[in-house]
Design a protein around this nucleic acid. Structure first.
Lengths: 231, 231
DNA sequence: ACCTGAACACCGTTCAAGT
DNA sequence: ACCTGAACACCGTTCAAGT
């Protein structure tokens, strides 16, 4: 919370170098990510930003992965947990999940990371708590809700990783075109279903597909008992 | 298919440097990945392996991402498309998806990549074709099947990325412990649901959870029409 | 205890020059 | 056309030495 707190300087010099701290490092990391993407959030770059050498950061941060995880939890603070509609619990669930996805959408690299490094920060816990509450509202048995939250967050995170709009590895349009091309060129003899589907491949907006995806999982959760355990 | 084809050497020298080719490069990449993981599949390392300079590879491969995509499609050739059971179409679907997940399980880094670079190789098309056929068997309307395959593969890929056993970024056990710890420490006042769930968090084997996950999505697909489009 | 310079061991990609 | 050496612009992490 004190990213650039000025040390009390007696002599008039250039803005005194603020003392290093975990908070300061994470805050700088978030700033760099917002400005230039997660790819630029490197130990060396951050050290440069904080006017020190990369080795100094290792006093406060174990490694790059841990730093990125801290950045992720910071970002999760932006997820809107208060669904506006007081309609069906399903719709409220979709609202919260959509907010989560949108937050990650701007940083697909972060979403990809969230799939390897299990988040466990404060903001993440808050989100899980909210999702569990909504599933409980819907009468989903507790253990099934636990597994269900896992699947819902997995789907949301993967969607963000896949369709996110920033920091693309290559040209996303070109890649999509390549897929469409591959599908359209698929010989009807070998790939009858793929061939037949070519036309409807681009059907629906990304937003429609995302909402459908969430409804599929929610519906599935209500219909699929955990084997042996719950009713 | 001709990874180390020997050029016809007249003089007896050390094994003549094979001519470079896309196939040779990809084959070498697959070999390096199997031996040491995707992390080691770098342009420089491959060049070294092929006894040349990194710049030479760019004649055959656009960049590292494209190379990794080629490796992925190669690996997808190992997915078992012929479900053994002739039971319910759902079970056969789960079998194929489980095979896909298992193939990626050994290479989570590849799974993560599959979420950013849309695959469109031959083996990938074959897999999609098979999944579409199984959904058609189940009477799922074509367009919904198209969207459904996307979700099923997304879930399978994300599972592999998340729970994969190799090339872990950090210590996976330590991370899982950190999550369990965070959940158990979660104050009951602020996080009642998370707190209540702490006990059952580790419930079920990964395999059970994966199968449940697939059944949830399949069930959801059969119950959730695409808005406005299909019946 | 905290901070640092310097080093080690790597990356991807480009480009002018060669064959 | 294909191949290459050399360079440019970066990485993460460690470690001995300083304050």
């Amino acid at each position: 919370m004190t990213p650039r707190e000025k040390a009390p300087t007696s002599r008039r010099e250039r803005p005194a170098k603020p003392a290093l701290s975990r908070e300061g490092i994470v805050a700088t990391a978030v700033a760099v990510m917002r400005a230039e993407g997660l790819e630029k959030v490197t130990m060396r770059r951050l050290a440069q930003e904080l006017d020190t050498g990369p080795a100094s950061l290792y006093v406060y941060v174990a490694n790059t992965a841990e730093l990125h995880a801290a950045v992720l939890d910071e970002l999760l603070g932006e997820v809107d947990l208060d669904a506006a509609s007081d309609d069906d619990w399903r719709d409220r669930l979709v609202e919260v999940l959509t907010s989560y996805t949108e937050v990650l959408f701007a940083h697909p690299a972060l979403a990809r990371m969230a799939l390897s490094v299990r988040p466990h920060g404060e903001h993440y816990l808050r989100l899980v708590e909210r999702l569990l509450a909504l599933l409980a509202d819907g009468g989903v048995p507790p253990e099934r809700a636990g597994w269900g939250v896992d699947v819902l967050l997995l789907v949301a995170t993967a969607n963000a990783a896949e369709h996110g709009t920033r920091e693309q590895t290559g040209d996303p349009q070109a890649e999509w075109d390549a897929l469409v091309h591959a599908v359209q060129e698929a010989p009807a003899a070998t790939y009858p279903y793929v061939h037949a589907l070519a036309a409807s491949l681009q059907g629906g907006t990304p937003r429609e597909r995302l909402a459908w995806c969430f409804h599929v999982v929610i519906s599935g959760i209500t219909h699929t008992p955990i084997p042996g355990t719950d009713s």
